[in-house]
Computed example of a mutant assay.
Amino acid sequence: MVKLQRIQRPKTHRGKRALKEREPKLIENARSLLCIRGNKINNIMKILLKNLHLLKSPYSTMYQKKNLDIYPFDNTSKLEWYCQKSDCSLFAYITHSKKRPNNLILARLHNNIVMDMFEFELNNQTFRSLDDFKCIKFAPGNKPCLIFHGELFDNESEYKRLKCFFIDFFRGETNMKEIDLNGLEHVITFTLDIQTKLLSIRVFRIEFKKSGHRIPRIELNEIGPRLDLIIRRTKLASDDFYKKTLKQPTAIKEKKIKNVTTNELGTKMGRIHMEKQDFNQLQTRKMKGLKRNLTIDNEQTQGKRKKIDSTN
């Protein structure tokens, strides 16, 4: 026998609005993060989860209670159910054990199915939280500037996917056409060492100083958190599934205009096709100043005739 699932329909306007926001859109909302704790955690991982929650705020939801041990690399059904319940497409899961100390798992979902998942080990000796830096922070909801250092981000397929994951993780709203420079308040840098393959994440605040010119002088001040992560395991989506996630609806795609291109500077260049012209048949504009005066011509011709008659 097949069990039929009962569909509960909303009875209030608030419930209807909440379901309408979860419906598929042409331009999706910003990706939200779900922060989950494991059964066994230490104080450092608890602070780390709070910092990730603040970095993604207001697009972040945090579960305060501890959960039973979940093994995402074996079974992700429970985490997928939590994300669907909270309407989140990213999750951060922390645990701490003797086998895997200071364990952090970051993942992203597509259509409530886990797509890419990365497991990291936090270096607790170099870790510094947001509270350790006594300085001005950034406003929540602002888009950060992301900088990636390291050849592996462009050469190896696994680290290419990791770069794409962090861009998807921190980019925020995607339907913005223009960004105010004053709104760029912080920078997040990702540095990957080729030899040790240690991933260092730093967060800086952008400060504009007077330079005596129109363009201000920019200074970066570290505001935290400071993370040094070692990649333990990865679980990447297949190429076919990854290609499906990259598809865009036809309504969003820009219609290609014939014979119009855009160069590197952003200026539009147009190409016009014309037939070969015969310049002998080209009709120019007859200006009044170019016309000879008829009265002057008549006087000159009469004067020439008188001279000829006198000579005769």
Rank of each mutant, 00 (worst) to 15 (best):
K20M: 12
E121I: 02
K46G: 15
T95L: 07
N67R: 08
D87P: 07
L48I: 06
K78E: 15
G38T: 05
L90S: 01
K99Y: 04
A18D: 09
L90F: 14
Q84D: 13
E80S: 10
S89M: 00
K46P: 04
N75K: 11
K16P: 00
P58R: 05
T12V: 04
T76E: 13
S129F: 05
H13R: 15
V114F: 08
P72C: 06
N39M: 08
Y63M: 12
V114N: 10
N123L: 07
Y71V: 14
Q64M: 15
L54K: 13
Y93G: 03
I94M: 02
G38L: 04
K46L: 10
I70R: 06
E80V: 01
F73E: 15
N111S: 11
K66Y: 05
K25L: 08
N123K: 07
N39W: 11
M115S: 14
C83V: 05
I47P: 09
M62N: 11
K40T: 13
M117R: 01
Y93L: 02
S89F: 03
M62K: 13
Q125W: 04
D69S: 12
G38F: 05
Y63C: 13
C88W: 00
P58D: 10
E28C: 10
G38M: 08
R37W: 09
H110Q: 09
P72E: 03
D74Q: 15
K65I: 06
C83R: 06
S32D: 10
I105H: 01
L104D: 12
D87I: 01
C83H: 07
D69R: 09
L52G: 14
E121P: 11
R100W: 12
M45W: 01
P101G: 08
S77Y: 12
D116W: 00
N103Y: 00
I44F: 04
F91M: 03
L26M: 05
R22E: 09
V114C: 13
S129Q: 03
P24K: 07
T12S: 15
N102Q: 07
L68S: 06
L90E: 04
L49E: 06
N29C: 04
C88Y: 00
K65Y: 15
T126F: 03
Q64E: 14
N75A: 09
D69N: 14
E23F: 00
K16I: 07
A107N: 10
N42Q: 03
I47R: 09
T126H: 07
I36K: 09
P101R: 05
K50D: 15
N39V: 06
H96I: 03
I113N: 11
I44M: 05
N51K: 00
K50Y: 02
K99F: 00
P58W: 06
H53V: 09
N43W: 10
I105P: 01
T126S: 12
N111D: 11
N29S: 13
L55G: 07
I94F: 01
L104R: 07
